[in-house]
C-alpha cells in the first residue's frame, strides 16, 4: 500500500483534513450565511425595488454554502485531481440542462394561444402591459373582456 501511495505522488494523504475545531467554524459560517439569506429574503424594500438583486444575492449565498459543505465536510479540498473528473462534467451538464429548458418552458407564455390563456393564471396588473404587447405582436389583439380588463387595470 505504501508503494502505491508513493507511486501516485501527490496523493490525498499529504494534507490531512482538519481537526474538529475547523468543522465547527465551518458550521457557524454556514449558519451565518443562512441568516444572511433570510435577512435578504425578508427585506421588503429589496423585494419590491430590485428582486433580481435579492435573488442573485441569495443564490450567491447558497453557492458559497454549497462550496463550504463540498470543500470541508465532503473533504474535496483534500482530495486528488479525480474530484474534477466527477464533479465538473456533472455540473456542466446541469447548466446545459437548465439552459435547454429556457426556450420551451421558460418562455412558454410567449407562445400561449388565446385559448390557452383562458386556463392560465391572470398576469398581475402591473405586468399586464407586457402581455398586451405580446398579444399585439402576434396580431391577436387583447380581444374580449380580458383585453378590456387589462386596459382598465394598467
Amino acid at each position: 500500500m505504501a508503494h502505491t501511495a508513493h507511486d501516485h505522488g501527490h496523493g490525498e494523504e499529504h494534507h490531512a483534513p482538519p481537526g474538529s475545531g475547523k468543522y465547527w467554524a465551518v458550521f457557524f459560517g454556514l449558519v451565518g450565511l443562512t441568516v444572511v439569506s433570510v435577512t435578504v429574503g425578508s427585506s421588503r424594500a429589496l423585494r419590491e425595488n430590485s428582486p433580481q438583486v435579492m435573488w442573485a444575492a441569495m443564490m450567491a449565498v447558497s453557492c458559497a454554502k454549497a462550496m463550504l459543505v463540498i470543500l470541508f465536510f465532503m473533504h474535496l479540498k483534500w482530495e486528488a485531481n479525480w474530484k474534477y473528473v466527477l464533479t465538473i462534467p456533472a455540473s456542466i451538464m446541469s447548466i446545459f440542462l437548465l439552459l435547454m429548458l429556457i426556450p420551451d418552458i421558460g418562455l412558454r407564455t410567449r407562445n400561449y394561444s388565446e385559448e390557452r390563456w383562458l386556463y392560465a393564471a391572470q398576469p398581475a396588473a402591473h405586468h399586464a402591459e407586457e402581455k398586451k404587447e405580446t398579444l399585439h405582436e402576434k396580431g391577436v389583439g387583447g380581444g374580449g373582456d380580458e383585453g378590456k380588463a387589462f386596459e382598465h387595470s394598467s
Binding site: 437548465l98 429548458l101 429556457i102 421558460g106 407564455t109 391572470q122 398576469p123 396588473a125 405586468h127 402581455k131
Partner: peptide, 10 residues
C-alpha cells in the same frame, strides 16, 4: 425556469 416563465407576477 417554470417559476420565472410563469405568467408575469403570478
Amino acid at each position: 425556469v417554470l417559476r420565472f416563465g410563469a405568467p408575469s407576477g403570478t
